[in-house]
Design a binder for these strands. Structure first.
Length: 649
RNA sequence: GCCGAAGUAGCUCAGCUGGUAGAGCAACGCUCUCGUAAAGCGUAGGUCGUCGGUUCGAAUCCGAUCUUCGGCUCCA
């Protein structure tokens, strides 16, 4: 290959030669004029680059249009610059922080001085952005020396940019300029503001500079942009749909839980319907755990402060615990976790290697002080119940036990057809964040990694996300609004056995240290329930639904027949009610549909005579008539198999 | 905790620049005895989150406070 030409490999595997110095635009144009028109950037060997930047080295190339994630990121990154330009026009004294693209749009952190940004400001900035976009300004890349860059931002009196520059090396500093706005930026950007056709600034938030609470709090403006107006409309409709699934809204409408200000912030009260769901979930997991050799225990809601000094949780997590309670001469803590209690159960008798693994499980309620601004419905609370268990095992048993935990966790999520992301949370190099011996840590991380590979898990490794006593496998799920929540977790712990001096007698008649696995498939019953509400949009599978069947007599002369069926269904273990109200059936059906009751049985003259029921399925509609006994066996099977609700729409 | 926004009937919301509150649904009562997403009529329900201030007069303006929501920070 001569230096005058470039060899580019395309996603379909084809390889083509281009003159050295060709731009992404040239390449796109050689494929089709339409692609050239729609291209936003290219990805060359995994790196996103400007469309109009000359390519000097060959490699794997992708042309990024709006339809690709890389294309959207480029688009939104440029949109952040447009937001900054518009803001600068309207508020010339504003200082700029950072403005990256995010998974659904972009933001820019800015220092508005004494000005408080309002909704009205957002609308004005939006208008200015649209106006500037129509100028069709190009995004121009400028290579600059560090000293020139410092001089430029000193002149602009932009302290945050100068702060950023301090962390950068000379020789790799670039600026991007569009219209009258120049920003320190590594890029890349779309060719011109022209393609930004629809803009919505969504909300204002405070954000600390560099994420540090001690730094100045800047004003963050979130926005989203699209190349077509219709896409924005569609996006806004989607947002509305997501809000309809919000567990805080459905939680109230379906009588699942309330948060009462007199009881306290972050302290949910489970209503009868919610309690039914939760108890059913607990029974589901309890049965599965019994099958897998767990023993259930019960421990109190408080514990002596000494317990948490021994574990190291106190004062390590003092900031997120409720203050100790003084009783006579002693101090007690509302328990922030269940482990220490379980460790003491382990210690309560001499353990032989023949006793291991010992798997102690508890639906244990814990209390943590969460900052008030962080509380959120059932997702983030101050008192919650973990489906906790601690597995005490020998080192030889560890990997199999981790596998069993992964298997159980996956079984749980599969039951609900939920997709989860798996994260291996390891430690980073901030040593004081973690307890225990470094050698134990390395061993535990290696073992977790090996298990994940042996099971063929699809995972990402997250340094710095470990707990203080050990690395973990975390299961992460997204809520209706795309926010991520950690649900299940599996943690390997070599630290607590040391701190609590846990031992077992081995076959060699010597004392040995067990290893502990902490695990919770649901994580927290509160959070998991919130995720379930949003996952099913309130349409729970039959086995979980608080009320499974509503009997609807056509008029009150059929109420007796309905009540007979109600009795038989109850005896079969189903949750049933008869709607005896003096309403027309249309109204009763509508009411049952709104309450998201899985089955409605309509009973009138015909059914009474034939011994049948007319079956209506929530969201599906009339399913015709069945003999009562046929219906009973159908629903019994549906409960037994934990069938997920039919998907429509 | 910090930044921003919002609190009017059980729920969803109206109430313009100050003249002491209004609708729909739900609830309750009566009538209708009804066939797959809303029958008709009527009744009751609010010291407008709370406290203070301005004013002849405050749901409306100002301050404080509480709660909730969206973020930030934190998360064993």
């Amino acid at each position: 290959m001569s230096s005058d030409s470039l060899s580019l490999t395309f996603p379909d595997g084809s390889v083509r030669e281009f003159p050295n110095g060709s731009t992404g635009y040239d390449v796109a144009k050689s494929i089709s004029p339409r692609l050239a028109r729609e291209a936003l950037s290219i990805t060359l060997d995994g790196q996103i680059r400007d469309l109009n930047r000359p390519i000097t080295v060959g490699g794997y190339i992708k042309i990024n249009t709006w339809d690709t994630e890389d294309g959207q990121q480029t688009f939104w990154h440029s949109s952040a610059h447009l937001l900054a330009e518009a803001t600068q026009e309207l508020f010339p004294d504003v200082k700029f922080g950072i403005g990256p693209p995010i998974s659904n749009g972009f933001y820019y952190d800015m220092d508005f001085g004494d000005h408080k940004v309002t909704e009205a400001d957002l609308r004005k900035i939006e208008q200015k952005m649209l106006e500037l976009a129509r100028n069709k300004s190009t995004f121009d890349r400028i290579d600059i020396s560090k000293s020139d860059a410092v001089a430029l931002f000193t002149e602009k009196a932009d302290p945050y940019k100068i702060d950023l520059l301090e962390g950068l090396e000379d020789g790799q500093i670039t600026l991007y300029k569009q219209g009258n706005f120049t920003d320190l930026c590594r890029g890349p950007h779309i060719p011109s503001t022209e393609s930004i056709k629809a803009i919505k600034l969504l909300h204002i938030a405070g954000a600390y500079w560099r994420g540090d609470v001690k730094s100045k709090q800047l004003t963050r403006i979130y926005g989203v942009t699209f190349p077509k107006k219709s896409m924005l409309d569609e996006y806004l409709i989607q947002l509305e749909e997501a809000k309809k699934r919000d567990h805080k809204k459905l939680g109230r409408e379906l009588g699942i839980y309330i948060i009462d200000s007199m009881v306290g912030k972050g302290l949910p009260l489970w209503l009868p319907n919610g309690t039914m769901i939760r108890r059913t979930l607990e029974a589901f997991l309890r049965d599965e755990q019994v099958r897998r050799g767990y023993k259930e225990v019960i421990t109190p809601h408080i514990g002596n402060l000494e317990l948490y000094k021994t574990s190291g949780h106190y004062p390590y997590y003092a900031d997120s615990q409720f203050d100790p309670i003084q009783v006579e001469d002693e101090h007690y803590m509302l328990k922030p976790m269940n482990c220490p209690h379980h460790h003491r159960i382990y210690s309560s008798s001499l353990r032989s290697y023949r006793d291991l693994p010992l798997r102690l499980a508890e639906f244990g309620t814990v209390y943590r002080y969460e900052q008030s601004g962080e509380l959120n419905g059932l997702s983030r609370v101050r008192g919650f119940t973990q489906d906790d268990a601690h597995i005490y095992c020998t080192h030889e048993q560890l990997k199999d036990e981790i596998k069993n935990c992964v298997d159980l966790t996956k079984y749980v999520f599969n039951t609900f057809d939920m997709s989860v992301d798996i994260r291996l949370s390891f430690r980073d190099d901030k040593k004081d964040k973690y307890g225990g011996d470094g050698a134990f840590w390395n061993r535990a991380q290696t073992e977790i990694n090996e298990v994940a590979d042996e099971l063929g898990l699809d995972y990402v490794i997250a340094p710095g996300e470990a707990s203080f006593y050990g690395p973990k496998i975390d299961f992460i799920i997204k809520d209706a609004l795309g926010r991520k929540w950690q649900v299940g977790t599996i943690q390997v712990d070599y630290v607590m056995p040391e701190r609590f001096d846990l031992t077992y007698v081995g076959s060699d008649n010597q004392k040995h240290r067990p290893v502990i696995i902490h695990r919770a498939p649901f994580g927290s019953m509160e959070r998991f329930t919130s995720i379930l509400i949003e996952h099913f949009a309130g349409d729970f599978p039959l086995w979980l639904s608080p009320l499974q069947i509503m009997l609807i007599p056509v008029s009150d002369q059929f109420t007796d027949t309905a009540k007979e069926y109600e009795q038989q269904l109850k005896e079969a273990g189903l949750r049933v009610e008869t709607d005896e109200r003096n309403d027309q059936i249309g109204a009763k059906i509508r009411d049952a549909e709104n309450r998201k009751i899985p089955y409605m049985l309509i009973i009138g003259e015909r059914e009474k005579n034939e011994g049948t029921v007319s079956v209506r399925r929530h969201r599906i509609g009339d399913m015709g008539s069945l003999n009562f006994s046929e219906f009973l066996s159908k629903v019994s099977l549906e409960v037994k198999n934990r069938v997920n609700p039919p998907k429509s729409k």
